[in-house]
Nucleic acid binder design. Structure first.
Lengths: 205, 205
DNA sequence: CCTACCGATCGGTAGG
DNA sequence: CCTACCGATCGGTAGG
């Protein structure tokens, strides 16, 4: 059997993906509980009952999306390639890669918020268990290799890196369609990265 | 007629407040659409129909909460009092005051996420219109009065300040109940403020 | 004419 | 993958 590619997905796989993609779109627009199984079915062009051949429940669709579509699977290899001469260069590149990826899949930030709002972060800890062991070593390596860091705890270095990206993405959502939007420079994201970097780096003095 | 105080609320005011407080608690725990009007009524100890003497719809309850209970009403006077000799001291004090207030009303951060998830930030722009004219002058004053700032756009200074607080609050929710929790120092919030401050301040060099 | 609320039920929809 | 349904519950409203 050849490895599955897009060309030779089974009919079942195609339907399953159609359900996931429909659900992503609708959850993103309406939220989880405001989205009905009938809407998902209609959007995926099958009958309501047909969904239950692929997923046992509405929550199972959400879990599949959270796990299958997580951007870190595409982001991670990119980050590892994003080398740089200095810590500053590396983190700067990494931040740009992550935000570019998140912007190309803008649904995910909202799915993450749904996860917090509707499930109290229930599936989040599973995700962290998967990601942390891969991400922490990167920040441990940074801490060990460089001496000009003001923050030397890899966990909080990781957390604040994620936090910096989250704060950009969320304030971006909040201020869009607001009067503040006009006051923002277009390179706001660079400023966020800049604030983060020159906060964690010791002054060259 | 004396100004209304807690002692002489009318029966109607008391009921209205009971409905708002019940809704806050349930929205926070379950999300907006997962919370039924019946649950809100039960928690407020009145019949379902009774709610509609005070609110025309479920969404009107949410709007009232967002507008009435916004922590900025309590945070703002405190920030204005949080003077400091330097910009660093002032922002440090301000950040602590805001986070302390948000932690004492931990519901609000979640209501804000619901607002984004369920209403696509619909009510948020109203709120920004109310807050921005009061908050921006503070950051404008900071920009004018100090010369050791790396960020001189008041709007993005404001945005990144809010973003710093949001990123702390949200990553706090995400990592609670996770293995990462143990790796976090207890003063993680101070580190966040520290990263923010030494990011926006020029090196004394 | 007001307020605060009741028991019962409306038309539709939820997940399964 | 569909049609046809279920027990229950949804947000909202009726008259009194």
């Amino acid at each position: 059997m050849p490895a599955k590619k897009k060309e030779n997905l089974t009919k079942g796989d195609t339907t399953r993906l159609a359900i996931e993609d429909s659900a992503i779109e609708l959850f993103m627009e309406q939220g989880y509980h405001a989205t009905s199984m009938r809407q998902i079915a209609e959007h995926a062009e099958l009958a309501l009952g047909g969904i239950y051949n692929h997923f046992a429940s509405k929550e199972e669709i959400f879990e599949a999306i959270i796990l299958d579509k997580h951007p870190y699977k595409r982001v991670f290899p990119a980050i590892l390639e994003a080398e740089g001469e200095t810590v500053e260069e590396f983190l700067n590149n990494a931040a740009h890669v992550v935000i570019k990826e998140l912007k190309s899949q803008p649904y995910y930030i909202k799915l993450m918020l749904i996860e917090i709002v509707e499930f109290n972060g229930k599936h989040g800890s599973t995700l962290i268990k998967e990601i942390a062991p891969k991400a922490l070593p990167i920040f441990e390596r940074i801490v060990k290799s460089r001496k000009n860091l003001r923050i030397t705890n890899p966990a909080i270095l990781f957390r604040s890196f994620i936090g910096m990206i989250l704060s950009y993405m969320i304030t971006d959502i909040i201020i869009s369609n607001s009067i503040l939007q006009k006051l923002m420079p277009k390179n706001a994201m660079d400023t966020y990265v800049d604030i983060y970097l020159h906060g964690i780096l010791k002054a060259e003095a």
